[in-house]
Design a protein around this nucleic acid. Structure first.
Lengths: 197, 197
DNA sequence: CAGCAAAATGAATATCTATTCATATTAGCT
DNA sequence: AGCTAATATGAATAGATATTCATTTTGCTG
């Protein structure tokens, strides 16, 4: 068995267990059992419990960034790019619910943790949004009064909150496509009625 | 000393300690020390550690709801109402940073916890937003294609994420007024440039 | 197959802390 | 003041679990 196999087996198990119990309530022995390794084995691949969390965070967000950037390369229009980003973000829930739950949780979990550990991968992820907005502004499609730095947070926050809704409510009120449409429409056109004035 | 004084002393201490260390890393003895009571005293007012969190959550959100509703009563226009809500939400950070941090954290912390314990107070809070949107739609000011159920989450998520930025970054990049303006403008008018087309 | 290093095991350790409860203090009343 | 009930105390308990490490197993090489 390749070394990386065991590393990834443990990571996958951790995702499952963290999603089920939350980081603090998850026991190392739970992860070990899920990964079908001995408790001690985990410490051959990770320094401590926290390190499992950080590693998995970095690794998985890294993969997501690659995937989204690849998709965005094939599209030119900033509006449609935004739509792709939104849809892709929400799709994570359908494809990897446990992971989505862990990422969501950990992003908040301990703000202390987020303070110390400068979360470069996360910043890289949301900077994809500000790049799209910049592009739209350069082309004169987007309003230049909007700060991309604020807008990227606003859009990420909105998508993240929609994800949370899915995680908490078992019953899906809206489909992912519908939600992506609504969120994008809201951000692109705004609440105000174009027909009135 | 009135009973409620000690209850509130413990609650205030818990807010401070939870904000500083996070719920799981906070010790009962930390809270007791901060509140200047004995460890055991806490158990005369709360059932367990978790109960402190839930109580404080309910109590404090309850106060915030009252305050916001009072302010909104004095305004009729849905656009300005939205602006008031946004500004008020962000102001919490300035006025009660520790509380803002705890509410933010706990809202995510353990999704498990949020699942079990049906969080009526939180729902009441975000339903203020959907009520404003409904009103705007009824008056023909807001686009009827937007679902208030989605929009309330989107707007809350956006504001919450902006709060998080403040909590993590010591350096405030934007003032609260600026941020409220930007967020509202984004939601009301959208990203698209009105002059182009 | 022998010999060796790398990898894996899991029982034992060491520490931590929520909660309890026997005891002490306080406050209200006559 | 003396009595009683309500409050408050904090040391002791009980249980949990992250991490270590002596031992075992595996896999490779000549």
């Amino acid at each position: 068995m390749r070394v990386s196999d065991k590393h990834s087996k443990i990571t996958q198990a951790a995702v499952k267990v963290f999603a089920q119990k939350g980081f603090f309530n998850a026991r190392i022995s739970d992860i070990a059992k899920e990964a079908k390794v001995a408790d001690g084995t985990i410490y051959l691949y990770f320094n401590n419990k926290y390190d499992i969390l950080i590693s998995l965070f970095e690794d998985e967000i890294g993969k997501i960034i690659l995937q989204v950037k690849l998709l965005l390369e094939q599209e030119d229009d900033p509006c449609r790019k935004l739509h792709i980003f939104a849809k892709q973000h929400l799709l994570l829930l359908e494809e990897k619910k446990d992971l989505a739950e862990v990422l969501q949780m950990e992003l908040r979990q301990s703000n202390k943790f987020m303070k110390e550990y400068r979360n470069t991968k996360f910043i890289e992820y949301i900077d994809i949004i500000s790049a799209i907005i910049h592009q739209g502004q350069d082309r004169g499609i987007f309003n230049r009064d909007i700060s991309p730095g604020i807008a990227k947070r606003v859009i990420f926050g909105a998508l993240d909150e929609m994800s949370r809704l899915w995680i908490l409510d078992e019953a899906p009120h809206y489909t992912i496509a519908e939600t992506a449409d609504q969120v994008c429409s809201l951000f692109l056109n705004g609440l105000k009625n174009p027909t009135s004035h």
